[in-house]
Amino acid sequence: MPRKVLVTLYGNDVAPRFDLTIEVFIASVSPEGRIEEEKTVVLPQASAEKLCRMIITEDIQTVICGAIEEEYFEYLRWKRIEVLDSVIGSCRKALEKYIRKELVPRAIFWEKPQNVLS
């Protein structure tokens, strides 16, 4: 059974803030660690509530994000969604680490060449 993972995006990186995210990357990862399906969704506006609703409706099992407020963090966990927060680095690298089961909350794997803000 594939696991659905959502990564909050800011350019090519994990977005610094969950509530200010306007773009997300969704991938279905097979038990063998293959990405079976992937899509990028642009949100109409930044809203933590709407993003949480989308996570529920899309049946996401793991969320990879940057800073997240207690209220939404606890809500997602209550909904039995794994939240790997305070992650700093590129989306690709985060997914690779997730697939290798190496990704943990507060992980930092920033690489200078990807240092492009806005």
């Binding site: 977005a15 700093i88 920033w110 803000l117």
Partner: peptide
């Protein structure tokens, strides 16, 4: 690391 990822303020992004 760029300040936006450490400070994570509402004005950074």
């Amino acid at each position: 690391i760029p300040c936006a990822y450490i400070l994570r303020s509402s004005v950074c992004q």
